[in-house]
Design a protein around this nucleic acid. Structure first.
Lengths: 233, 233
DNA sequence: GCTAAAACCTAACGAATTGTAACAAGGCGC
DNA sequence: GCGCCTTGTTACAATTCGTTAGGTTTTAGC
């Protein structure tokens, strides 16, 4: 696996540089921002694995941001806050944060908590061979897609690669570059079209309405998002 | 879903009963133990979803127990400890614990942290995030705008960026400079026009009367202001 | 009030991006 | 060989979205 991407959102430059240093040393890629707006703009093209968020931001309510990140992006969200009241921690965690670290903090503990979160996140994708989502069941051992009525449609190896990529990271932006990498395609001019075609074929097997796809959304200029509720078996 | 099973392993009876009370109230089933031996015996017949473990136990080294629980049982392990040194926390987390809570602790926070862990353990339980305002419902996961009668209009990624910006800061002036930063546009001469066009397109989808917009007001020379009553779901 | 300049709106165009039908190359079983 | 399936490639259609070019509205100066 490549280095996990950690984003840092904090309005204090000193804390940002400190965290960047520590996290890069610990083996993470980092992106840091001082404003929520700039951070959200970056989300259009990057998919962080872990988001460190300071709640006291000048330009947004941090809690709604946390809520959105956790629900929509499916990212791991860790709040870093100067507010130490229990009630703050409880609401932060209930809004979807995965952890809550109080300032001042020890760098080593931040690293340890990030690692703990990544570990448990990676433990979930069991090497199960079937996945259920929105009335469909994908049998990767038999290369068969089963609808809610039990009717089966075979899918090919290439289609399965794309489908697995989506099912491994539902509700997260998958850039074309990421697809290229994990589908082993050369970064050729024409491979972009090949990828489109794979997705197009997958969409027809999932009986997507071309005008209004419900499961595989295109993000113009960025990539794709798979919107199913996935359970691996 | 049935009530998750939480085990408590702590040698202080007062803490055990307190945790049992709080957790039962919060909707969990509990089993509590004062000794590691009894706890391990119970594992033969029960499979806990979450294990709360106090490190200072009379009959075992807590850390090796944590390690075994996390690795072999695959359980969610939360350490509760009187030792507050950073090094303790780091080694605890690195040995496989999912969280580390320091005594004395607030019961509400324990509940919140248990819930946060259970939530991330489940594959993708959450439903996408939406915002409601003035008869409209914006589904950012599906890129769809739904009116009060339930009719749906798709919106594009660029339109969604603007809409999200508004919904994040309703009833507040948003300057063109802020938009530029948030939408990742270069400060070009023509970007102002691009901005205008995005808003114009959004206005038509919101069926605004151009002569008298109700939701997106233009503040001549300053920026825009969104006047909806927003509720995020 | 009037006029001019600035700011803003939006229809229409076009470049970039994406969708997909149709074709072609290769593999496999017969 | 032939037929069938898989999958990349090509070509063209469709969509997105910035840009241009006027038109309209607002403000400032008088």
């Amino acid at each position: 696996m490549t280095r996990p991407l950690v984003t840092i959102l904090d309005d204090e430059p000193a804390i940002r540089t400190m965290l960047v240093d520590v996290l890069e040393d610990a083996g993470f890629d980092t992106l840091s921002f001082g404003r929520a707006r700039a951070f959200e703009a970056a989300l259009a093209t990057h998919t962080p694995d872990v988001c460190l968020v300071d709640l006291s931001l000048p330009d947004t309510d941090g809690l709604t941001l946390v809520h959105r990140l956790a629900l929509e992006q499916g990212a791991i969200v860790i709040i870093i806050s100067g507010r130490s009241e229990v009630q703050d921690r409880v609401t932060g965690l209930e809004l979807g944060a995965d952890d809550y670290i109080i300032k001042p903090f020890e760098p080593a503990e931040v690293v340890a908590r990030i690692r703990a979160r990544l570990r448990s996140a990676r433990a979930t994708p069991q090497t199960g061979s079937t996945a259920q989502f929105n009335g469909w069941t994908a049998h990767f051992d038999r290369y068969v897609l089963e609808d809610d009525a039990g009717a089966e449609t075979p899918f090919s190896h290439a289609e399965g690669e794309v489908l697995r990529l989506f099912l491994d990271s539902p509700k997260r932006l998958i850039s074309r570059a990421q697809m290229q990498e994990s589908l082993g395609g050369a970064a050729s001019e024409s491979f972009d079209r090949a990828m489109d075609v794979r997705i197009s074929r997958l969409r027809t097997k999932l009986r997507e309405d071309p005008k209004n796809p419900q499961l595989i959304k295109t993000i113009y200029g960025a990539g794709y998002i798979f919107l199913g509720d996935v359970t691996w078996r």
